[in-house]
Design a protein around this nucleic acid. Sequence first.
DNA 1: CGGCAAATACTG
DNA 2: CAGTAT
DNA 3: GCCG
Length: 644
Amino acid sequence: MTAAEYAQTLQLKPVVPATATVSGGDSQRKWRHLLLKDFTFFYVSGELTYASQSTKKRMDYIHCRGGIVLPAYDPELVTHIIVDTANPDKPDAGVTLRTLGLKKLSDIPDHVPTVKWKWVNSAKLVPNGDRAGNFRIVEDGNGGHVTVRMDWEFMHSAFVARVHAGKGFKNTGGNEKDKGKGKPKAKTTAQRKEGENSEEEDNDSAEDISDISCACRLIGSVVGVRLIFVCSRNFTQDAPSPPPSAKETTPAVNQTKSVQSEREIPFISDPLGEFEALAKEEKKAEGFLCDAPNSNSLTSECPNQDIVDKLEELMELHRAKPTEEDKWRVYSYSKSIRKIRTYPHRITSYEEARNIPGVGDKTALKIKEILETGELRRIDIEYTEDLDVVHLFQGIYGVGQHIAYMWYSAGCRTLDDIRERKNGIKVSDVQEIGLKYYDDINTRMPRAEAGEIFTAIKRTAVSIDPHLYVEIMGSYRRGKATCGDIDILITRPTDDGNSHEGVLASLLSALQREGIIRENLSMPDFKDDPLEAVYRGLCVRPLREGEGHDTKRLVHILTVPYKSRGAALIYYTGDDIFNRSLRLKANKMGYSLNQRGLFAGVVRSTENKMIKTCDGHIIASETEQEIFRILGVPWQEPWERVRS
DNA sequence: CGGCAAATACTG
DNA sequence: CAGTAT
DNA sequence: GCCG
């Protein structure tokens, strides 16, 4: 979710005051307090697509101290702008202006200081009520009052051009307040959020975010601590931990709960150490794919690119084939190819290939052949005439390997053959739709369009019940520039005694009325659990004036019980390979992971592995972090979970 | 030689 | 329910 | 296909 959206969710959460330990003389006391009460912040993170863990934590930090975080910049309401872009010590004016929708820094009203995060951190309780410096009297959490002292804003001014803004710089007291009522010249954040993810957003983050994070890590390792610092700030969780009390106070929506309790790390404790830990993990963890944060897409100069190409070609041939055998071959190839792709030097012999874990005798022989001849005969052998046709048929939604081959052996060769039911083949309703929209379904959509459709669906959902938790997952959440489909998760907190029961049905009919949903592919079945259901269909982006773009897009809408949201997030965010690895690791550890949670003590009958003798008991499900932690998998942002 | 992820929905 | 697809 |  974006920073704006997160700020919005925060507003719904109750404020439970944080506590701080205060040493007064020889005794230590715990104070509940609302250090930041009466402040209204707008937080500039520079993160266009999502709020990072760090951003969320800082927003939480403000929230549980009584401060308000505006979801959109509003010069009328805001008292402080926090600029916390990539490098916290060197705020980015360009990013700030873009986020605010302004042209010049001077468009910000003079009474609104632009400060670095450090300023927020400077707030301290004054135990003896000593009134000196920049102090304020604020409510404590119990109806009383306490004294708070913090640095003057100018001491932590984000931009030299604006050190004068706010209090303290010169004690002029008044008359600057209404100078430039700074109305936004361009769009406000709220307005731009409307057309969210359209053009601008994608220009900035055009490609895979994973590439960025990857490059960042790489640079960091070469250049040294300074850059590692920058990178780790952006891509891992290392925000200042709110005081321990915050973890009971944060309502369940907060995904960071368990992490906070585990890592009481002061801000940037030891970036180098963190990096070493990562490196160590990568080295020794010959274990599970999910353990090592994405190190792929180092596509530039892979010394074994030719080998990778040939093996991939062969893998794709097997992928189209129908047998169980081929399925596992593909599984195996994908693993070995990944290893070869990240192998640092040119492979020169069978032996060398064979020594790579995941590369067995057969693959090593193939590599040898490629090294010697530059070709792979097996490709020609596997590339039978049926493959193209079967591949074509498999592009029809609802048609897999088996049906594709059945149709082929029935003599069908083209999509028109299928449309005509040539030789009496059967085509199901769903397949008929798949046929009708063959091109649409097989074309990935720009990220921005996925965002637009999501926004529209979310708007409708929230109009049905404003308390719904609605998130977009899948490749969108992984930061991809294009999306094959749209995965939407819906759930709802139950603390007010209500649930999202019945919402999906209403939502679907509403979306149908709006003309957003055009075709149904599969309808949910609420028989077991009214809170858990899956819908699949085809939708179009909300039509705009004079624009006839109505390419049908695959949409999946899922609902889960609120308790399961963490597990569901993992499950539906993927990617596929990452998930399989995660679940494999869970199994090896004696657990079982599915979209509802992480279970212990699951017993499967040895005969029919599909049947669980014992369901086991759930040990985690509410947050992604919790599940990662129990599985001993280092936290990875969605865009770092790319394995395929 | 068995395991390799795990669940839901549709079809017949 | 088994087989298929997602 | 690879692994234990």
